[in-house]
């Protein structure tokens, strides 16, 4: 029963499989992104209150919500690292941290650009914004911890623990807008009904953008994990052969 699990944990197997998935993911991402961006910029109606700044939502919301996936991913990878000592899990966790930091920073920046005209301020120390900033610093902390410890195994264990603890911040970010009063608005209730005020014309492009940005997250994670695999396995025969065969300038 556990066989598939350990096969998945083989870096060589992952490298070969992900090489097959990448082109498809790339096509899917490009298609979703082009449809989503054109729809958001050209066809989404202006909001009755915020006018054209509603178009900012189609970047901000996907990036922010996917940034929340990063810590749970790193925590699960951390548990696998600690319990089963699977090398691939630690490689994924290592590559996820900088990508997550990028996502969090872009979410904070796009939110600030939106808040400046709409709220009248680009920053407020409310629970949502502050917990998001904490996520950013936690990710920087994970990256710093990894680079501070020389031994790969010790670094893997320390980062796994920090990731598991840091994942507690995710439900805090998610529910901050309900638990406390904040400047940030709560999540919207979009409606399936064609004639509802917040109907499909507003949320369908948002769903497309969320899937597009998810594809982008997975692609960039796979790309840097593949590099990490080559780096750590550079002495094994299959990597030596691969480098010899590779056609690059």
């Amino acid at each position: 029963m556990w066989q598939w699990f350990f096969r998945l944990g083989s870096p060589k197997w992952f490298y070969e499989m992900s090489g097959k998935w990448l082109p498809w993911l790339f096509v899917l991402m490009t298609a979703l992104l082009s449809v989503g961006i054109v729809w958001a910029l050209l066809y989404v109606p202006q909001d009755y209150q915020q006018g054209d700044t509603i178009r900012i939502m189609y970047v901000h919301v996907p990036v922010a919500s996917i940034s929340l996936a990063c810590f749970p991913l790193m925590a699960v990878a951390g548990i696998i690292t600690l319990v089963w000592k699977m090398k691939l899990a630690d490689m994924v966790a290592k590559c996820a941290a900088p990508i997550g930091a990028w996502f969090t920073a872009v979410a904070l920046a796009t939110g600030a650009i939106w808040g400046q005209p709409i709220w009248g301020t680009w920053w407020a120390w409310d629970a949502r914004l502050t917990s998001m900033l904490i996520q950013f610093f936690l990710l920087i902390g994970v990256i710093a911890l990894r680079s501070a410890i020389e031994s790969t195994d010790a670094a893997a264990k320390a980062c796994a623990l920090l990731s598991i603890v840091g994942a507690i911040n995710v439900p805090i970010i998610k529910y901050s807008v309900e638990w406390w009063n904040t400047l940030h608005q709560p999540a919207s209730n979009f409606s399936m009904a064609e004639d509802s005020p917040m109907g499909p014309e507003i949320w369908v492009p948002l769903v497309i953008m969320i899937f597009a940005v998810y594809c982008f997250f997975v692609i960039s994670l796979i790309l840097s994990t593949r590099n990490e695999i080559l780096e750590r396995e550079r002495r094994s025969q299959w990597v030596v052969d691969l480098i010899a065969d590779e056609r690059t300038n």
Partner: peptide, 28 residues
């Protein structure tokens, strides 16, 4: 506001897709 958000998004996509490619080429 709108264009700086979309500009930032473009930079974000570009960096995270092309940096790993450059690193891979460098490594090989």
């Amino acid at each position: 506001h709108v264009w700086s958000v979309y500009g930032l998004f473009a930079v974000f996509l570009f960096v995270n897709l092309f940096k790993p490619r450059m690193q891979r080429r460098q490594f090989i």
